[in-house]
Design a protein around this nucleic acid. Structure first.
Lengths: 141, 141
DNA sequence: TGTAGGTTGCAACTCCGTTGCATGGTAATT
DNA sequence: AATTACCATGCAACGGAGTTGCAACCTACA
């Protein structure tokens, strides 16, 4: 199994199990946001119970290994970059969803510009979802 | 029934039915984002079938009367402001979810600052979700 | 007031989120 | 290498939400 996978599990004090290794490896290889259904499909030959995949995702969320990605179609998950740890989860997320190929990716280099909230409001976490055409799909037009 | 309600239905070429009037009126009164479950609860004495409420929301979405609001907990819906019409739906949404009281509101006065996408990317629609404490909940701390 | 066509309620199905519990597996200790 | 405490898994089960088909009903207009 990949070094990133075993290291990640070890660094977050998680037991290395087949399901966790496979889920994490799928995120590593696909490099895009995945839904629970995507994972079930990708690992269907491994015969993991859907509850196990559900609990694996929940555990990874709690540990800060992945984070939620939201769009019109529902909830997906993506790997957190180095900036996220269990103690200080990254409080700013920028995601791009291509309306053509359907892929959703994190734009880690893009930061949310400053904005001013109404009086009395306090921001703790912000996420920006941009929908449009990704570079690959733009070229094909 | 409220004038806003009957006008809105008429302006979008929708027949005025009891369910549509009540759903729209609930949005008008509550002034916050509502889930299908919220609406079922608010209108449970009216005995509308949950499929009817589901279809009402779907119709309102298509007509641009409401729009989806997404956060960790799932999908909610909120009234679109004047800026949205069926032809040109507003392509920028800013929502604030209070982590204390749980309410989600549109921040119509707040615009998403400019940002620059990676080469080749084209934005069509953007939505910013800010989570934190709203003015009411901040005061109570 | 009658009619055409849109709307509703009901049944039914699927998918996802969630929990309890018994079983099985991992990792630390000896 | 064997033991063992505890965590992880699979299975069953439940509720909620999304979705569709269809017959009955109701709105809007002539």
């Amino acid at each position: 199994m990949d070094k990133f996978v075993s290291d990640t599990l070890k660094n977050h004090n998680l037991r290395t199990t087949s399901c966790r290794e496979n889920v994490l490896d799928t995120f590593r290889i696909r490099e895009t946001a995945l839904s629970q259904g995507d994972l079930e499909g990708a690992l269907k030959n491994k015969k993991f119970d859907r509850v196990t995949i559900y609990r694996t995702l929940k555990t990874f969320l709690e540990k800060g290994i992945i984070h939620k990605v939201l769009d019109d179609e529902g909830i997906r998950y993506a790997l957190c970059k180095e900036r996220c740890t269990e103690a200080s989860h990254n409080h700013e997320h920028v995601h791009f969803k291509c309306t053509d190929c359907g892929q959703t990716n994190c734009l880690d280099n893009l930061h949310i510009p400053a904005f001013s909230l109404p009086p009395g409001y306090r921001a703790q976490e912000t996420s920006l979802l941009i929908q449009g055409l990704c570079a690959d799909c733009t070229q094909q037009k």
